[in-house]
Design a protein around this nucleic acid. Structure first.
Lengths: 142, 142
DNA sequence: GTCTAATAGTTGTACATACAAATAAAACCC
DNA sequence: GGGTTTTATTTGTATGTACAACTATTAGAC
C-alpha cells in the first residue's frame, strides 16, 4: 500500500515518520558494507572530520540527545573505531587509525546512498525538498 | 543549534530523521492527556473507525510491520482498550466500550495536534509540504 | 576561599520498531 | 484427500532513541 492511500496521508506525524522509516531502510542498506548503522556512521564521520570533538558538540550537530551520543560512542569504542579521553568534565573523542583506514569506504557508502536516492527522487527536486524539510524542522523550534 | 546549521543539513537521512523526531515530540505531548503514545493512539483510532479490522490491514494503513502492530496491540489490550478475537488464521480487532468512551478525547488530541503544527508551520504551506512528503515517500518504493 | 549553581557526561530504564523464526491455518495441486 | 506451499499472526531478540537520575567537575557569588 502506498503512503498516499493511507487513511493518515494528510497527517504530519504519520507522513514524516513513514518517510523517515523508508529513508532509514535505504541508508541501512548503504552502510551495511561497513557494518555500521547510519547513525553510527554519521557520528564516526564527524569524529574523523573533527578529531577531539566533545560529545555535546556532536549531539548538537547530529540533533540527538547527549545520552544517545554516549550510547552510539559505546559501540564505536567497542569496535575500536574511536577512543575517548576525559580531562576534567570534558571528553574528547578521537578516531583510531582503524577508523581513518576505512574512511574511503565510508565516503563510498555516503555517495552511494546519495546517488541512490537522488536517482529515485530526482536530483533537483530532492534538493529542494530537503531544503524545505530543514526549513520546516527549524520552525518547529528547539 | 538549528537543523540548517548542521553539517548534514543537505542529507536526506539526517533531515528526515530530525524532522520525524521533532514531530514525534510534538505529537507525544498532544497525546499525553490520554496516556497514549502517538502510534498507539493512531492504531486505536483506526480500530474504532473500522471495528473488526485485521492486523495485516492495520499494518498496511499505518505502514508498520505486522510484528510492530502485534506489539502495539499488546499494550492496548492490556489497557483494556481493544480486544482480539481469532478465528482460524485471521484475527479481528475490536474496540472496547472504554475505548469508545474516550473517543471524543482522542479526537480532541488529534485536532489539537493538527492545530498546533498548522499554527507553527502555516496551514497552506504545511498542507503542500505534507503532500510533497507523501509523494517522495511513495517514490521510495515499498 | 568556601558554598552553591551550572554544566558535561554516563547509566538505568523504557519504548517503538524491525527482522527472523516459530506457529498455525488456509489454499492449492494433482 | 493428502502433501506442499502460501498466508496471518505472534514471539524472541536486537537496536536506536529518549528521559530521568546520577556523578563529577567547573564557574560564580559573596
Amino acid at each position: 500500500m502506498k503512503t498516499s492511500d493511507s487513511r493518515y496521508s494528510k497527517c504530519l506525524y504519520f507522513t514524516s515518520n513513514a518517510l523517515a522509516r523508508k529513508v532509514d531502510k535505504l541508508a541501512q542498506e548503504s552502510w551495511k558494507k561497513v557494518n555500521l548503522s547510519p547513525s553510527h556512521a554519521y557520528l564516526l564521520m564527524m569524529v574523523i572530520e573533527e578529531p577531539g570533538s566533545q560529545p555535546k558538540i556532536l549531539a548538537e550537530h547530529l540533533q540527538l540527545q547527549p545520552s544517545t551520543i554516549s550510547r552510539l560512542m559505546e559501540k564505536l569504542e567497542l569496535k575500536k573505531l574511536i577512543i575517548r579521553t576525559t580531562e576534567g568534565k570534558l571528553t574528547n573523542v578521537y578516531p583510531t587509525p582503524k577508523a581513518k583506514e576505512i574512511l574511503p569506504r565510508l565516503n563510498e557508502c555516503l555517495s552511494e546512498f546519495y546517488g541512490r536516492y537522488a536517482e529515485i527522487l530526482g536530483k533537483e527536486e530532492c534538493g529542494r525538498f530537503v531544503h524545505n524539510m530543514v526549513k520546516m524542522t527549524d520552525k518547529l523550534g528547539p
